[in-house]
């Protein structure tokens, strides 16, 4: 019985020490993220963000080129033709 009591005390200490340590460790990690990483992020912003905006511009140009009025006319012509055929079949 005394042995059990000893085990319980040991488990309690372990629980206390463990939880305190887990919180301290992950708490320090929060500080690390807020202090180091956020500063790093400001100093070295992602190149991808810039390239994204530039690729958007490119896309726009491509879009303008790709959907020319002639193509739109051809597609709408094909669609009306298809619809007419489809309704005729019905």
């Amino acid at each position: 019985m005394e042995n059990l009591q000893q085990l319980f005390i040991e488990a309690g200490t372990l629980m206390l020490a463990g939880m305190v340590f887990v919180f301290t460790f992950l708490g320090l990690l929060i500080i690390f993220i807020n202090v180091v990483l956020v500063k790093l992020a400001k100093k070295f912003p992602d190149a991808i963000v810039e390239s994204r905006s530039s690729s958007k511009k490119n896309n726009k140009k491509q879009d303008d080129k790709a959907v020319s009025p002639a193509v739109v006319a051809a597609i709408s012509c094909a669609v009306t033709q298809y619809r007419q055929q489809h309704s005729a079949q019905k």
């Binding site: 993220i33 180091v36 990483l37 956020v38 992020a41 070295f44």
Partner: peptide, 10 residues
Amino acid sequence: HVTKVEKIIF
């Protein structure tokens, strides 16, 4: 947005 540098240093 999280930058690449942050993800590498973490």
